[in-house]
Simulated assay, not measured.
Amino acid sequence: MLGDEPVKTPKPHYHGHRDRLRARFAEKGADALADYELLELYLFRTIVRRDVKPIAKELIAKFGSFAEVIAAPIDRLTEVKFISENVALDLKILRAAATKLGQESILNRPVLSSWTALLDYCRSAMQYEGKEQFRVLFLDRKNRLIADEILGQGTVNRAPVYPREIIKRALALDSTAIILTHNHPSGDPTPSHADIKMTETIIQAAKAIDVTVHDHLIIGRENIASFKSLGLM
């Protein structure tokens, strides 16, 4: 009827939940939130018109943790209902940003005196990779990180690595020391016989051009194995 108040559409029930979750995060920080709640906070921005709590819980149930969700491949993320390719890509951007922050904490700093930060960075970059990945950290004369490059990617248990490519990059970057690192998707960081032989080959090739190999780190799901600590180099 003329003069009647327009009927207001009630807000979806999850709007109040979103406000409360944001307020809890603002007051107490991320440590006060479960992994699925932290994931909810991010999904609020990408899935606007839907209750994302069950979606966040399903993602955590499928992959195990917040870190494992954002590290998961796009094709596996989209197996979860309501996770489109765009939403999956947003999650991958979050992972890239987190890795970049870790890299910034050690870039152009003496890594041997920032070893804990280096280990944290390597873990965040490689811990949940589903395939083996071989990275080389190139250092300058003051042992500052000048480059971090992936020089081998492969299957779930092998990444082809060519010592000549490592030496070529070290020369091009004017690097005087390197740290080798790769992940074991199985989760067990124990060095294999092939890992040990490959490391010996790289050390000998590097020695010929006066490049020092400080360590070889193998990243597992929970732990990191250091060749130097294990007496393997």
Rank of each mutant, 00 (worst) to 15 (best):
M1Y: 06
M1N: 03
G3D: 07
P6M: 09
V7I: 10
K8F: 04
T9V: 09
H13N: 12
H13M: 13
H13Q: 14
H15M: 15
G16N: 09
G16S: 09
L21A: 00
R22K: 11
R22F: 03
E27C: 05
E27F: 04
A30H: 02
A30N: 02
D31F: 09
E37G: 01
L39P: 00
L39I: 01
E40N: 03
E40V: 00
L43M: 07
L43Y: 00
R45L: 11
R49V: 14
R50F: 13
D51Y: 07
V52C: 08
P54R: 02
A56S: 05
K57D: 00
A61R: 04
A61G: 02
F63V: 01
F63M: 01
S65F: 00
A67R: 07
I70G: 02
A72N: 06
I74C: 11
I74D: 11
R76H: 12
R76L: 06
R76W: 06
L77N: 03
T78H: 06
F82W: 12
I83C: 02
L89Y: 14
D90A: 15
L91W: 06
I93S: 07
I93A: 06
L94E: 10
L94C: 07
R95C: 11
R95V: 04
A96I: 13
A98Q: 10
A98F: 08
A98G: 05
T99C: 15
K100W: 13
L101C: 11
G102P: 09
Q103Y: 15
Q103G: 14
Q103F: 15
I106E: 06
V111E: 09
W115A: 15
A117K: 13
D120L: 10
D120I: 09
Y121G: 09
Y121M: 13
C122T: 08
R123K: 12
A125S: 12
Q127L: 03
K131G: 04
Q133D: 08
Q133E: 12
F134I: 03
F134E: 01
R135E: 09
R141Q: 15
K142Y: 15
N143H: 14
A147H: 13
D148V: 08
E149W: 11
I150Y: 05
G154V: 06
T155P: 04
V156C: 06
V161E: 03
P163F: 06
E165N: 15
I166M: 14
R169I: 05
A170L: 12
L173R: 08
S175K: 09
S175E: 04
A177T: 12
I178V: 15
H182Y: 07
S186Q: 10
G187S: 01
D188C: 02
A194E: 08
K197W: 10
K197D: 10
M198N: 10
M198L: 14
T199D: 08
E200D: 13
I203C: 12
I203Q: 09
Q204T: 12
A205W: 08
A208H: 12
I209V: 15
V213A: 05
D215K: 04
D215Q: 11
L217A: 01
L217V: 08
R221C: 00
E222V: 02
E222N: 09
I224M: 06
A225G: 02
S226Y: 00
S226D: 03
S226W: 00
F227T: 00
S229Y: 09
L230S: 02
L232M: 07
L232A: 04
L232G: 01
M233I: 15
